[in-house]
Nucleic acid binder design. Sequence first.
DNA 1: CCTAAATCGGACTGGAAAGCTCCGATTAGA
DNA 2: TCTAATCGGAGCTTTCCAGTCCGATTTAGG
Lengths: 132, 132
Amino acid sequence: MRLTHLADYAVVMMTAAARREPCARLSATDLSQDTGVPLPTAQKLMQRLAAHGLLVGHRGAGGGYALARPVGEITLADIVEAVEGPFAMTVCSEGRTDCALDAHCRVKPHMGIVGDKVRGALGAVSLQELAQ
Amino acid sequence: MRLTHLADYAVVMMTAAARREPCARLSATDLSQDTGVPLPTAQKLMQRLAAHGLLVGHRGAGGGYALARPVGEITLADIVEAVEGPFAMTVCSEGRTDCALDAHCRVKPHMGIVGDKVRGALGAVSLQELAQ
DNA sequence: CCTAAATCGGACTGGAAAGCTCCGATTAGA
DNA sequence: TCTAATCGGAGCTTTCCAGTCCGATTTAGG
């Protein structure tokens, strides 16, 4: 029950962005230098965060990314979900039924509820709190 | 943010044990047949669960495992923590400081709190609820 | 006392997913 | 129109997890 390195990096980068001016243009290079995250990795992460609507990208010279929403409306759950995928405690919660235990499993109906609880715990932490 | 297969298997096995009589002797073979978990994997999991005080092992002929506590006093958090290790969102929360971002990281102090929240969410679910 | 059954502990192999890097496509500014 | 800086996707290497096997230890029963 721990975050992947990519999700950890994403949280660090988003908090670094939250400390800047709102709507400021942030390039992947800028955040890479601020946080220490390797540049190619930072690029890949910002792509995913933009694809999930947490950042908006502006291309071309002078472009970069900007927070899509106010810092109070972006939660830890949003960031983790953008990088790691949906909060499913088990693979069978995602619709996949290729589980060898599926026939005898009596726990499956409860796992969706558990996932929601975990998501609620992370959803209660906003970027504003993380940035102090 | 998902459980490993081993933790998933452990939850299924513990719920299967919870449906038996309290204090019943359960061998790894029994639970393996009931749940469909491969026998060697079941053995390894029960070792870990016993090492963390969730099961008590009885060696020798007629031996087996039994739940160490009533089903209402064993939570999902206990099981996951026994198999996956402590609830640390990041490696730096466990005391390791070999993180390249450590110097600039301003999020580290908050991660311990986040881990506690997640643990609380899983700690609110007891074996009794999972077994219906 | 002896046999048999079952747990405990370790080390080893295979496989999947994460993590990192490089290269092409697109766009704004001069 | 040309240049420069960025977004976006594809590929590869590496690390960690999952599964398996073996031997050692212990206890109940005949």
